[in-house]
Simulated scan of single mutants.
Amino acid sequence: MKNVFRTWFLGITTIFALLTFGAATYAWFTSNRAVSTSTATARTGEETLELQLSSQGGSSFQSVETAAITQVNQTTATQLMPVSTVNLSDFVYSPATVDGMASAFLQVENEQYYYHGRLYIRAQGTGWSDGTTVNLYLDQSDGLLGEASSGALLTASRLGLVFDGATSSAVILRLTEDENSQSQQVYNTVINGQTLGSNQVLQYQNGTVSAATDPSQPIADYTVSFTSDSISLPSRPLLTMNLNQIYTLDIYFYLEGCDPDCSDGISQDMADIHLAFFGALNQGEG
């Protein structure tokens, strides 16, 4: 039998898009953000289980109802610019466009132009058998997205999650499968004379920028769904957690510059983003 519990992770991000370069088709924006979280506890007989969040890790871990995401960018990250990445480790950007086309790219240094924050998460439990783990998913039952002045910004946005700094755990999510109108879409990323399509991004490797398949996945692929009497779990979790182990969660939010929805049409746009996690308990033998 599986026991389930969930906890809210409320990331309220207000994004003020501000167009900076009139000759560029990319939008720059300034971001202010405030974040709150709360915990939920499941208890069955002598077993207890709580999903805990903290702004600090290690011996400083302290589960609180309101935990701020600690920004870890090496820069202030107050001005964000569309970037492109295949792995959440190496980002590139276009410093300028020529005749509306981006064909020159540089590696992003000091984590400029995108948001990078960090939280710590733990499934605290007692009374469970050895080998018990918790599978972590997303839960949109109460709404993934808060309020948005328009959905245009969200179509070009990406949410990246990395657990314990392991690149193998990196997940890049599309926040919506909706697309902007054709009049708001642009195909203006050019590599080796070839214009990239909607399913391509840029990768940086050994000082060279090249085209790659867009690694982003629909957020629904990691999201539980509910009916009146059942729960449907995705085929794979974001993370399988050992009990009482602290995990680092790195959170990336950025505009994918190669996305055709990343155009001047998103300037002056605003959005609130809310995420919820859902845990499914896997009991070990004994």
Rank of each mutant, 00 (worst) to 15 (best):
T75I: 07
T76V: 11
T76E: 14
Q79E: 10
Q79M: 10
L80H: 06
L80N: 15
L80T: 04
M81G: 01
P82W: 10
P82N: 06
V83K: 08
V83A: 04
S84P: 00
S84C: 12
S84H: 03
S84E: 02
S84W: 01
T85P: 04
T85Y: 09
T85A: 12
N87S: 09
L88D: 07
L88K: 06
L88I: 06
S89D: 13
D90W: 07
D90N: 15
D90F: 03
F91K: 02
F91V: 01
V92Q: 12
Y93N: 04
Y93H: 12
Y93A: 02
S94T: 01
T97Q: 15
D99L: 10
D99H: 04
D99G: 13
G100S: 09
G100I: 02
G100V: 02
G100M: 08
A102N: 11
A102F: 05
A102C: 08
S103M: 09
S103T: 10
S103V: 03
A104E: 10
F105G: 00
F105Q: 02
L106D: 07
V108D: 00
E109W: 03
N110Q: 15
E111T: 13
E111A: 13
E111H: 14
E111V: 04
Q112P: 01
Y113R: 11
Y113E: 05
Y114A: 05
Y114M: 11
Y114W: 12
H116P: 00
H116V: 03
G117F: 10
R118G: 08
Y120C: 07
Y120Q: 03
Y120T: 00
I121K: 06
R122W: 04
R122T: 04
A123V: 07
A123P: 08
A123H: 06
G125P: 05
G125W: 03
T126Q: 14
T126V: 14
T126G: 07
T126I: 06
G127I: 05
G127F: 11
W128E: 06
W128F: 15
S129N: 14
S129I: 02
S129K: 08
S129R: 13
D130G: 06
G131W: 06
T132M: 05
T132I: 05
T132S: 12
V134H: 02
N135R: 14
N135W: 00
Y137P: 03
